[in-house]
Write a protein that binds this DNA or RNA. Structure first.
Lengths: 323, 323
DNA sequence: ATGAAAGCGCTAACAA
DNA sequence: TTGTTAGCGCTTTCAT
């Protein structure tokens, strides 16, 4: 553990005071430092490899430039557009001079919150979730939802699916739900969107069924469904991953897609175009949302009042071969 | 921005000194604090919602419990077993009281390194990479490769692929490379593994070809390949994602898999079992590696000497329908 | 234009 | 057993 290079070292090296060093390095506009002096400081800092020490700076009262995001797990990150959002949010925040870092888990911040001094905390949990509240009381900085308006977003995707299938002349629909218990809340939301839209369009009530994650299970589930409800001709999948399960089952059962059964997923998964047949899906443009969220985070980091940002509720169809 | 609750506040509330508060809260074994006093402190802290302030603690010289990991992008996270490794590494580190956080980008740490005081830094880059060196000079703490021995790991996967295909009686092989330029280095490594193993087994030289990310491009590429090299019967894909492209192209071209062409990917992608036909793949058990890496990181965090940890070089085949 | 010094919140050596 | 205090590295007011 090499000794830390401090601004005092730089000052000594440059033959100046610590104050001058600080002025130069932070470009304090209220000070007039002659050019030669600036040079001396910069050279000394360079020579010594000086890096300001964050904790001291923060202790002094500097505003943190760190944004800490909590996500339960990595799978979740490939869920909906999360990966997209996270990546582009990072970029957008950099533009405001903020740095996005990321922690797995939903609130195990106990330890991290000690060594970490974020300006803002983001959580993938809903504002009403236990995990979210825990974060609120763990941190003394603003805690924001990373995916505000998720409910409307989810329902919107379902709406787009149903409308699309209807436009293709498929009116008797099924909803393919995932089996994982932790996905239940989201799946329920999507299901509500599906049924509500079906009702609005005057379609028969859709049928909900669960698709096991394993292929054999998926085959059995689809087989049973089509046996008991032979009139079903359109399938809204919870997401593209579930849709892959449906496509696999259809292939194994010899069910022709889209002739016999049209399938639509959600999320625009990168492998969708490579499915057999290529998977139709639904996706929302989150560009505006991400930019707005980044603005919102920057505002919160600066201590300004929040402003409501919501995920889009409109999704557009990406039509491929499966529908 | 509410005023921060300090240990002085707790001391005042409890009618004690800051030192006593600190002793109690940190459970200093060298002090004998009577039980009633401890109670008073804990109650006061609880009542005020006191949380120790990290920066001050670190400034005082506490060792950071933070491990910062750099990953270029999220796609990379779905690459090889990275997602697996990262998730389980986080768990393993928690067991040692360390907290894994994560930053996208390879060295744009300029800013973050200021507000962040990690005990150890991990980078997905190779030790010889520019980005890696940059991190080394940016941080004054140990910087470790997150995927040490990646070269052997990659070559090992290729070896397993070739051996598997050979065992299936496929001796004239092709290697399906991705087109993305940033994947080139890794793809080259895999290619070397493929050719070397083929040579060792006395097979004819494999043929390398690039698979565009889009379906049409993939179809054209595969079509051309099979036209020019009609004797090819086995395909090693760079990874499962590329393998999906090959499967899609084969389906579109009416090339029977595995009868006409056996396909093997790498990574055990979660969608592999749902491909049409289910995708054979190759994967290494990284459990031991992750545990060893966690130990290594903990050791580095404690300032102990490093010990070499390497990714496994042996991969096992997950045989499914495509081979 | 530059320097001296205070203080952010915390821990630990030293006093009482 | 508990309190006093120095000092970690940094910024910034105030004095020179």
């Amino acid at each position: 553990m090499q000794k830390r290079v401090t601004s005092a070292d730089v000052a000594r090296e440059a033959g100046l005071s610590r104050a001058t060093v600080s002025y130069v390095l932070n470009g304090d506009p209220r000070q007039q430092i002659p050019e030669p002096t600036r040079q001396r400081v910069h050279e000394a800092a360079e020579r010594l490899g000086y890096r300001p020490y964050g904790p001291a700076r923060l202790l002094r009262g500097a505003k943190s430039r760190l944004v800490l995001m909590f996500t339960p797990g990595l799978e979740h990150a490939s869920d909906f557009v999360a990966a997209d959002i996270i990546t582009s949010l990072g970029d957008a925040l950099s533009a405001s001079g903020l740095h996005l870092v990321w922690q797995l888990g939903d609130s195990e911040a106990q330890g991290a919150s000690i060594d970490l001094a974020p300006a803002v905390v983001l959580s993938s949990a809903r504002e009403s979730d236990e995990a979210f509240l825990q974060l609120r009381q763990q941190f003394s900085v603003p805690v924001l939802p990373a995916f505000p308006g998720l409910d409307g977003f989810i329902a919107g995707a379902a709406e787009a699916q149903v409308e699309h299938l209807t436009a293709q002349g498929r009116t008797t629909l099924a909803f393919a739900a995932p089996e994982q218990p932790d996905l239940k809340p989201t799946a329920d939301l999507r299901w509500v969107g599906v049924t509500r839209t079906a009702t609005r369009l005057g379609l028969p009530d859709p049928v909900r069924f669960a698709v096991p994650a394993d292929r054999d299970g998926a085959v059995r589930a689809l087989s049973t469904l089509l046996d008991t409800h032979p009139d079903i001709s359109g399938m809204c999948a919870y997401n593209d991953v579930v849709a892959f399960g449906v496509l696999a089952a259809a292939a194994d059962l010899g069910v022709a897609v889209p002739e016999r059964l049209a399938v639509v997923g959600v999320d625009n998964h990168s492998l969708g175009p490579l499915a057999v047949p290529a998977l139709s899906t639904v996706r929302a443009d989150v560009g505006d949302f991400v930019r707005a969220l980044a603005r919102e985070v920057a505002r919160a980091a600066a201590g300004d009042d929040p402003e409501t940002v919501l995920l889009p509720t409109r999704s557009e169809v990406v039509r491929r071969k499966s529908s």
